[in-house]
Write a protein that binds this DNA or RNA. Structure first.
Lengths: 210, 210
DNA sequence: GTCTATATACGGATAGAC
DNA sequence: GTCTATCCGTATATAGAC
């Protein structure tokens, strides 16, 4: 008899197939516009199975959302809390990892941000992203740099917003960007790769750091 | 008999009431999650009237979307094409106007970007935003500055992405930002006001301009 | 133009056979 | 576990009275 955990790569379990299909559809079209029938078809299974495994569309969605955000938080918290790296190194690593991740999952941020608008409270408080960020070594380093006069004195949120904005926006607005620049997918990705180097430089220059 | 055009301010026509309600609902919850009944209720009229005036939910949506984007493009094209202002002045004005607009309509960008993902082609090509931007005096000034060596040589899109990212992202991600910074609406708006000054400075510093 | 009542379609969820 | 068939609520849209 084959164990439930053995076939992680070769033949995904039905449950995994549904979750993968759901992730694709939800991130592409959002919760309301996604039909459970579409998910079932994409997964190559029957509609009834979806409810058999996950009870309801909403429960399935909540699970996908939770896993997406947990994965994201986990992927950056290591960088943020590495006490052996400078602020500059952290920013470089963060930008690079982030861009690589978004290149693989370009629809993720728009999905998260859209759904967050409609279900604002639950997930944000459940994941407690705020505490994780504020208590991070990264955040402490920013505040310390301000105190020591190495960085212009201003609300640390401005730096967070700038970094996130410069990284995320091109992906969120990719239809517009591609249109303006006459870019196909590969030249768009090339531009994003350039930004791994450029964004940290810009951040440092606006911080008066080097 | 009262003319159709006379009551623009005092008592909006039924058609206007429906459009206003639709704009609010669509931008808040997106196309798929918005119910025509909600729009009718918000407008204080009956559901049947919505179809009487606009035939269908989709036609109403297309109209709202078109008008929103036209309004946006018109509001910035004046600034972009003012031949009497320097690149720096244009950036300052652009940032300031944009932040004021988004403070009044904070849900607009997420709405536009979300719906653009699902109906990518039609509107983008219809509005021809690309041509309007590329042929603008603003764009020419950027390219000229690069040629003259005043700005580091790189794809002009990077500047567009940075400006837009720094302006738009905080609004798109406002639930996260507010949560991280423990901000209520008014302190969030205050931060945005600060950015009217800060963003142009950052842009100039990354351009090596002054 | 505006309403009430209703036709019609669609989507989420379940019953029940295998 | 997986399928087919179906129930049932809800949402869009229309018919028809006023």
């Amino acid at each position: 008899m084959k164990s439930k955990e053995s076939n992680t790569t070769l033949d995904p379990s039905t449950e995994e197939k549904i979750k993968n299909a759901a992730r694709v559809m939800f991130t592409q079209k959002g919760y309301a516009a996604t039909r459970t029938r579409d998910i079932a078809q994409e997964a190559g299974i029957n509609l009834a199975l979806l409810n058999y495994y996950f009870r309801s569309k909403e429960k399935l969605f909540d699970l996908i959302m939770l896993e997406s955000m947990q994965g994201f938080i986990q992927s950056i918290s290591g960088v943020l809390n590495d006490e052996g790296t400078s602020l500059q190194e952290k920013i470089r690593t963060l930008v690079s990892n982030y861009i690589d991740m978004l290149t693989l999952q370009p629809n993720l941020p728009l999905f998260v941000l859209s759904e967050l608008r409609n279900h604002p409270h639950e997930l944000i408080s459940k994941l407690d992203f705020k505490e994780k960020l504020i208590r991070s070594h990264f955040f402490v380093q920013i505040q310390q740099a301000i105190i020591e006069g190495k960085i212009p004195p201003m609300h640390p949120l401005h730096f967070i917003m700038n970094i996130m904005g410069m990284i995320i926006f091109p992906f969120v607005g990719s239809p517009i960007i591609k249109n303006i620049g006459n870019l196909d997918q590969s030249s768009f990705n090339e531009l994003m790769q350039q930004r791994k180097i450029l964004i940290p430089e810009w951040i440092f220059s606006m911080m008066n750091l080097k």
